[in-house]
Design a protein around this nucleic acid. Structure first.
Lengths: 209, 209
DNA sequence: CATATTTTTGACCGGTTGGACAAATCGTAG
DNA sequence: CTACGATTTGTCCAACCGGTCAAAAATATG
């Protein structure tokens, strides 16, 4: 039977699709959607272009499957921010998790960055349907912490933006960061330094009293 | 006489080149180098493709001229940070200036962001030759302020990264910001709100004592 | 007006790209 | 071993893209 849309059935189909998505992550994240070619992805996946197109009908289908599969993972740190926990502890955990994601999953970060930078033509629905509701919910949590005196008063939306921006910066602008830091300070330790700095910045800036 | 490389001579030549660069900024900033086409730029500039290529020999030449012409403007806020001024005042001015640039020149921000995101293949030399020395110099200034007790001790490089990230975020990720804020809070006022939040964050986080 | 120079255009070219397709190969159940 | 569906490949195509070129049109100069 031919591929029934998005429902890979055999083990081999699931595996091959996985290989393709891994290759596509590599290529899309470093060249953007337009800059990536099916040939590049096929090469990286170790198969011919027509073979790849047997598993995904179009370039857009690859991209869509990829980014949809990544969304949950990407939103996970924010989802994990727990209203019942201690505000400062939760905030610190969130920042640390985001920095770790920038370190361990820079391709995923760049994939989203590339797309949003170009106007998010392929993921607007995702932003409106999943991201915005989640941020609205967590903004309320932050607000309640502030009202309870656990955090200094501040705009919770812009606080979340600031955490996104500062942490993802180390993945998205990696070349710039490493160039500016130079060979000595631009090594693996840069994420430790960044984590230390950001925790100090946000916690000192938000600790009440 | 034919175009002598980068020296436009007649008034009309200077004007047409300016029109082209303005159109190119539009197209490059919203599609990236690879995603932009000469036809799009020519359309936006109101001329035919061969006509455009009469003024700039190649697509890369347009890009290079454009980004080189923008660099000084882009680095200006950081250059303006004055060692002899008051640390807190200087820092606040820097943040405000960067937010204003994100508001008034989002295309320029996205142009650089697009390029750096994809590994900065066309501007590595600029980063090493102009950006890094400038940041090194200003990091020393920040460090001296910290030693003098005007600012809390913190890594000056990561401080600069944090200011870049948080301010440019409002230009580079504009669609996401507006989507998350929604129609009511995502209007023109968002830059005011952002400025207020960021000043509070950085100044509270760095004020000594 | 005549001529020389600059500017603009239409037609074209070679290479790339996303994708179609039929034929070949492979794997497996009977 | 055979037959059938799943997988893979070579070939091809139309659209697009960066860039060339010669000729036409506009403009400047005497």
């Amino acid at each position: 039977m031919a591929m029934t849309e998005n429902r890979p059935q055999t083990r081999i189909q699931r595996e091959k699709r996985e290989v393709i998505l891994e290759a596509a992550l590599d290529v899309f994240s470093s060249h953007g959607f337009r800059g990536a070619t099916i040939d590049q992805i096929a090469d990286a996946a170790g198969m011919s272009k027509p073979n790849l197109l047997y598993y995904f009908k179009t370039k857009e289908a690859i991209f869509e499957t990829l980014i949809h599969g990544l969304l949950d993972m990407w939103l996970d740190p924010l989802k994990a921010m727990n209203e019942d926990g201690d505000a400062i502890v939760e905030l610190r955990s969130y920042i640390r998790r985001k920095i770790e994601m920038a370190r361990d999953f820079p391709r995923e970060s760049r994939l989203f960055a590339n797309e949003i930078l170009q106007g998010a033509p392929r993921i607007v629905a995702m932003l409106e349907g999943e991201l915005k509701p989640l941020v609205d919910e967590k903004a309320k949590v932050l607000k309640s912490w502030m009202r309870a005196g656990k955090l200094k008063q501040a705009d919770p939306y812009h606080l979340i933006f600031a955490i996104w921006a500062t942490t993802q910066h180390y993945a998205d602008f990696d070349i710039q960061v490493r160039t500016v830091l130079g060979p000595d300070r631009g090594g693996d330790g840069r994420f430790e330094d960044a984590a230390r700095f950001l925790e100090q910045l946000f916690l000192a800036g938000l600790q009440p009293g």
